[in-house]
């Protein structure tokens, strides 16, 4: 990372550079603010509002009593799966990190929200590196670089177009999800 082996970094320093969103959204009892400003996150209200905006969460956060001071139950039980996932994205964005990791984060979102969110990420945070783990081709087809993993090995890398032409595994995935005309 930036020319250094990640193992040379001190763990805390490495974590500071990364905004991580796990596959399973993790929420802690408290309020929305305390969940966004978790750990060494220390965003002010404006930054939080902007992150909420980017993560397509204004629609439900605004309805919450107290807005960003709205209560969060244990395990975020008072939010739906898609809402929790978006809130955990808010947490990562509010970190203002250099690198973002989205581990299969968009699966609980419907296609449209998924698309809007990715669009917002792209325009609002163009300087940051984004690492997206995904099952849906649609989520990653516009990526600058796509890595195809099979049994722990990289079996293809390139853009969507390149992989469609060269990588058998990628073709197989794409064919199962897209129709012929969409593959063009």
């Amino acid at each position: 990372m930036d020319g250094h082996n990640v193992r040379e970094y001190r763990k805390n320093e490495l974590a500071k550079k990364i905004g991580y969103v796990s596959q399973r959204a993790v929420m802690f009892s408290g309020d929305i603010r305390s969940n966004v400003n978790f750990g060494d996150n220390g965003a002010d209200d404006n930054t939080i509002e902007r992150a909420i905006e980017i993560a397509q969460s204004s629609s439900f956060v605004d309805k919450e009593k107290g807005g960003i001071d709205g209560a969060v139950a244990q395990n975020g039980a008072n939010f739906s799966g898609g809402q929790k996932q978006r809130l955990s994205i808010v947490r990562a964005i509010a970190r203002g990190a250099e690198i973002y990791i989205f581990d299969d984060t968009f699966s609980a979102l419907d296609y449209k929200t998924d698309k809007q969110l990715r669009q917002a990420l792209k325009t609002e945070m163009k300087d940051a590196t984004c690492l997206i783990v995904a099952q849906r081709i649609g989520t990653i087809m516009d990526a600058d670089l796509i890595l195809v993993l099979e049994n722990g090995r990289v079996t293809g890398q390139g853009t969507h177009k390149e992989l469609l032409a060269t990588c058998a595994a990628y073709q197989e995935i794409a064919r199962s999800q897209l129709s012929e005309e969409e593959l063009q």
């Binding site: 974590a15 060494d40 947490r91 970190r95």
Partner: peptide, 8 residues
């Protein structure tokens, strides 16, 4: 994992 990733 989140606790570690956010230095909490």
């Amino acid at each position: 994992n989140i606790v570690r990733a956010y230095n909490s």
